[in-house]
Nucleic acid binder design. Structure first.
Length: 263
DNA sequence: ATGGTTGTTACACAA
């Protein structure tokens, strides 16, 4: 089973890119973030035509929104709802026995101070709620957590560690908070494990550059984590950052990442 | 130290 996560930045605007990516990558389960539409506005027919007819959608008007589209049937799953503001940021499904939890974690605004910046407080609160959930999990159960986590954890996940340590997405408090969540569930970071440090990795590049490759200021904000019960099912050598997708015409600012699971 | 772009929306805002 090939699983992808992709912050699509409007699923309606980029539905043709979704279809192209699914066809070219052979994706079976696609976790999307920032679909930016209501559930009724989601292009269901296009997903059926691309072979992913099974859907779970959490949408809202204009902002945020997450979805899971699958070639395989879905069973119900309890979503880890960590958003205290009720945004459409969490969606889940059980697929081939795997509990798939897909998140669009708040970006957190510009000022990395919970007292001064409610958006940053929201981001930290979201992580704390997920951490509490993770602590209570049965680690032997197959669980996958993925999405746009809006934190680049390692110095090799940013273009410049010293500079980015003052910028929301890579501040020390955020890195510690993400590491606490990962430790709470014993999750494996499947992409980093496939490309060990000191290899630089990125999944997002700002629109504010004429040439994202020349600018070379990427961040690894998108993640796929597996529980101890699922990690042995990760097929070695299959974790992939689809960087060329960022160079397609009118792209999302994030590229997709994929991994194969033997389930 | 600053500014650069994009998508949705409605006459900014979030990222």
């Amino acid at each position: 089973m090939r699983l992808a996560t992709w912050n699509i930045n409007s699923v309606r605007l980029r539905i043709d890119q979704v279809a192209r990516f699914v066809a070219e990558s052979g994706t079976d389960v696609l976790c999307l973030q920032e679909i930016k539409c209501l559930e009724d506005q989601f292009p269901r027919n296009a997903f059926a035509e691309m072979g992913l007819p099974h859907l779970r959608i959490a949408g809202q008007k204009g902002w945020h929104g997450v979805a899971i589209a699958s070639r395989l049937p879905m069973e119900p799953s309890d979503t880890f709802n960590a958003c205290k503001l009720g945004h459409a940021r969490c969606v889940s499904a059980r697929i081939a026995g795997v509990d798939v939890q897909n998140f669009y974690i708040p970006a957190g605004g510009d000022v990395p101070d919970r007292a001064l910046n409610p958006k940053f407080d929201h981001k930290m609160d979201f992580y704390e709620r997920l951490t509490e959930t993770a602590r209570a999990l049965d680690r032997s159960r197959p669980l996958l957590m993925c999405g746009d986590f809006n934190i680049a954890p390692s110095e090799y996940d940013v273009w410049n560690h010293r500079y980015m340590s003052k910028v929301v997405s890579h501040t020390p408090i955020e890195v510690e908070t993400l590491n606490r969540l990962q430790a709470a569930g014993g999750f494996a970071d499947v992409v980093r494990d496939a490309f060990p440090e000191p290899q630089k990795l990125a999944s997002w590049w700002s629109y504010r550059a004429v040439d994202f490759r020349k600018s070379n200021r990427g961040l690894r904000l998108d993640h796929i984590w597996t529980s101890p019960g699922l990690t042995p099912a990760v097929v070695p050598g299959t974790a992939t950052i689809h960087e060329p997708v960022r160079a397609w015409e009118q792209p999302s600012d994030h590229c997709p990442i994929t991994v194969d699971l033997d389930v």
